[in-house]
Simulated scan of single mutants.
Amino acid sequence: MDGGGGAAATAATKWRTDASRAFQYYLDRSTPHATGRWLGTLAVAAIYALRVYLVQGFYVVTYGLGIYLLNLLIGFLSPMVDPELDPSAAVDGPALPTRGSDEFKPFIRRLPEFKFWYAITKAFVIAFLMTFFSVFDVPVFWPILLCYWIVLFVLTMKRQIVHMIKYKYVPFSIGKQKYGGKKSGASSSSSKD
């Protein structure tokens, strides 16, 4: 009789391993397709928002989701090595240049874009699943939660922007100079004439 239970456990373990491997395969294949990934996440977020709107509840779940997303955003906008928190670590690893004469070092995020996307998508899916259990539908006056979240967002972003200005970094590649390649030799010789 124990042989049947052992075979079922082995089959369940094999199925879980195969499912995990297939999930990781498709996750790895989605890595270079950032626009498609984010569009999918926007679709999941829209479905969640529609669900909350139609049910007229689960505001505490939405508030918790908002706080979690704000925490992820701070990790996404922060450098891997923060000179304000640990100045000694700046010597060992990649750090932000603090003076104009410092060598250029690229901005390395504490939370990479792929992990940021994955965590946001997973959070929306979990929050969506929570809307099917009435235990999470705590009655609350939602405008207070919304006001409190907006205050938290403004204060947190203000602190982050002040940090960016103080240490002179921009966490986005929009507007940064890019290498344009070598200029042709003919244009440089004609400019000497």
Results as ranks from 00 to 15, higher is better:
Phe114Arg: 09
Ala186Gln: 10
Val138His: 07
Arg99Asp: 12
Ser188Arg: 09
Phe23Cys: 11
Arg29Gly: 09
Gln24Thr: 09
Lys182Arg: 15
Ala45Lys: 00
Thr17Val: 13
Ser184Arg: 09
Trp142Pro: 13
Val162Met: 04
Tyr169Val: 12
Ala90Glu: 05
Ala19Gln: 11
Phe124Lys: 06
Ala123Asn: 13
Leu54Ser: 06
Leu27Gln: 13
Ile74Ala: 01
Val154Cys: 13
Trp117Gly: 09
Gly6Trp: 09
Leu72Val: 10
Gly100Ser: 04
Asp82Pro: 04
Phe58Ala: 12
Asp18Thr: 02
Thr10Arg: 15
Asn71Asp: 10
Met164Leu: 04
Trp38Asp: 10
Leu27Gly: 07
Glu103Cys: 07
Tyr148Arg: 01
Ser134Glu: 12
Ser173Asp: 01
Ala9Ser: 11
Leu129Thr: 02
Gln24Ser: 12
Gly5Thr: 14
Leu39Phe: 12
Pro94Trp: 08
Pro171Val: 03
Ala9His: 07
Ala46Thr: 05
Arg16Met: 10
Lys182Thr: 06
Arg29Thr: 07
Val154Lys: 00
Leu146Tyr: 01
Asn71Ile: 05
Phe128Gly: 04
Lys122Tyr: 14
Ala89Tyr: 00
Phe114Lys: 06
Leu129Gly: 14
Tyr63Met: 07
Ala12Gln: 15
Asp2Gln: 06
Asp193Thr: 02
Val135Thr: 10
Ala90Gln: 07
Lys168Thr: 06
Trp117Met: 10
Pro87Tyr: 00
Lys166Ala: 07
Cys147Asp: 10
Pro106Met: 00
Arg29Ala: 15
Gly5Pro: 07
Pro87Ala: 08
Thr131Asp: 11
Ser88Gln: 14
Leu39Pro: 08
Ile67Arg: 03
Leu129Ile: 11
Leu129Phe: 14
Arg109Asp: 05
Pro94Met: 11
Asp137Cys: 03
Lys14Leu: 06
Ser191Leu: 02
Thr31His: 13
Leu73Ala: 02
Val52Thr: 04
Ser191Trp: 06
Ser101Val: 13
Val151Trp: 09
Ile161Cys: 14
Phe104Trp: 08
Met130Ala: 04
Ala186Val: 11
Pro106Ile: 04
Phe153Pro: 00
Tyr148Phe: 08
Ala11Pro: 01
Ser189Gln: 02
Leu96His: 00
Gly66Thr: 12
Arg109Thr: 03
Ser30Leu: 13
Phe128Met: 06
Ser187Trp: 09
Tyr25Cys: 14
Tyr179Cys: 00
Ala127Phe: 03
Leu96Trp: 06
Pro32Thr: 10
Leu50Met: 05
Ile150Ala: 13
Glu84Asn: 04
Leu70Met: 15
Leu146His: 02
Ile74Lys: 02
Met80Asp: 09
Gly100Val: 12
Asp137Met: 08
